[in-house]
């Protein structure tokens, strides 16, 4: 079972694409209608933190699972 989860706040995202550039697991895609980021592959996240460290818009939250068997 995966230990991490990812969300993007669409209200804050400005479609710059930097999360797509840095994510080693191809978690994000920029959607067609407005180029904003969607974590289409969140189950692949390894919690490396790179996406939220670079996102200039504070739009990404990466969650770590706590309390359950990892």
């Amino acid at each position: 079972m995966n230990k991490f989860d990812v969300s993007v706040d669409t209200r804050l995202c400005k479609a710059c694409g930097l999360c797509v550039l840095v994510c080693p697991k191809k978690v994000f895609e920029l959607r067609d209608e407005d180029g904003k980021s969607v974590p289409v592959n969140a189950l692949a996240c390894i919690g490396c933190t790179q996406c939220y460290q670079i996102c200039p818009d504070f739009a990404i939250t990466v969650y770590k699972k706590e309390g359950a068997l990892a």
Binding site: T49, F58, K64
Partner: peptide, 18 residues
């Protein structure tokens, strides 16, 4: 989020800075 129904686990943001 895709794992909202995972009953046992709670998901905590990796950073509390924002």
């Amino acid at each position: 989020m895709v794992n909202e129904n995972d009953a046992e686990a709670s998901f905590v943001p990796m950073s509390s800075a924002p």
